[in-house]
Design a binder for these strands. Sequence first.
DNA 1: CTTACGGCCTGGGTGC
DNA 2: TGCACCCAGGCCGTAA
Length: 280
Amino acid sequence: MPELPEVETVVRGLRGPLVGRRIVGVRFGKTDFIDDPIALGEQLPGSRIASVERFGKFITLALQPLDTASRDFHLFIHLGMTGQLTSRKPYEPVVAHTHAFVELDDGLELRYTDIRRFGRMLLVPESGMGKFHQSVGRDPLELSQQEFLSRVGGRRARIKALLLDQKVLSGMGNIYTDESLWRARIHPARLAANLQPWQLKLLYRTMRQVLSAAIRHRGSTISDYRDAAGSPGEYQARHRVYGRKGKPCPRCHTPIRRIIVAGRGTHFCPRCQPSPRKKF
DNA sequence: CTTACGGCCTGGGTGC
DNA sequence: TGCACCCAGGCCGTAA
C-alpha cells in the first residue's frame, strides 16, 4: 500500500527519467480511474514535464504546454492501494493491469499499473492548485511539533483515526500509523484529547522517525508496491507490529494483537500500548 | 461542527 | 475445480 514513504520513493525515482522530457503520446487501457480521460489524451501530448513532486500520497507532474500561450497545468496521480508508476523502455514486457502509457521524447515510457484501480488520475489547472492545497492536510515531514499539537491535540476522535485523516495529515496510512503508535506506546483507540502533551510530542517524534527510516529503506512492500524501477521496498523487514499478529512484541515479547480501529485492521502490543479502558 | 459508521469500488488470496 | 467471502484506502452519505 503506497503511503508517504512509498510515494516519496517513487517520486525520487521518477525525477531523473521524467524532468525536462516532453510527452509525445498517451495510450490507455481501462480509464475508469481517470477523472477525464479525453482531456488527458488531448492535453498531455506536446507538454513538457517541468517537475515531479509529492503532496501527501499524491504524485504531481507540473506540465508546460507546447503552446506557450496556454496555461501550465498539473497531472495528479494517486496510487490508491495497488498503483505502480514505472519508467520503462518500450520493449520491456507490459505487466498485467497496466492501463496508462505516457510516451516520452527520449523513447522511454511512463506506465501506470493498478490491479484494483483504486488509484486516481486527474488534471488540475494552475488556478486550482490553491484550492487543492487548502483541502489537503499537512505533510507530516514538513509539520512543526507546534502545528501537530494544534491539529491533533484536544480532539475527541481516536488518535489512529486522526493520523489516518488526510485532511489532518496527508501521507500517513495504516502501516506507518500502527508503527508510529507502537513506538510511542500509545493505544490506537485512545482519544487524542485524553493523551498527555508529552505523549503527543513523543508521537510526533516517532511518526517522523518511522517515516524517515521507511524512506531510507525505500518503503514497504507487502504485496504489490514497487518503486519507479519496479523494485520492491525493504522496510517491511523492520515492521514491529504491522502484519505481525501473534508474533512477540520486539520490546516485551507479548503477542501482538490485531483489532479494528477506525474501520481499519490495527496491530498493537497490548502490554506496551495499554488500552484506554484499563487503568492501572 | 465533530465524530462514527456503513457502503461502494475491484480482484487476489483464502478456506471450504 | 469452483466459489463465496474477506480485505484493502479513500471517499461519500447519513446519523447521532
